[in-house]
Amino acid sequence: MNSNDITHTLSTYVTTQILKQPKRILKGDEPLISSGLIDSFHLVDLGLFIEDKFGVRIEDSELNADTFDTLDQLVVLIQSRQ
């Protein structure tokens, strides 16, 4: 999967499953965690989704804005572990 595909998959998941706003377009550099858009519960959900979809584990200690805060950063993280 290239980075565009990963971005698309993640973006779709976040807008439909977490934000429940399917029409919303997420920018690659839009802060997700520090802005409060994704709360701690949904962050765990996102982690489970990533583990399930890309086979990449994000540790409990990594679910925070320091590890990744935007879609772009998350894509880089996933690719670095695949």
Binding site: G36, S40, F41, G47
Partner: peptide, 25 residues
């Protein structure tokens, strides 16, 4: 939610890492 992302952040993160996240999972 954002308040708790910015108040005593290291303690909140500790609880997320060793309690909240594993339990939620």
């Amino acid at each position: 939610t954002q308040f708790w992302n910015s108040w005593h952040m290291t303690l909140a993160q500790w609880f997320r890492t060793y309690y909240f996240n594993p339990l939620t999972r």
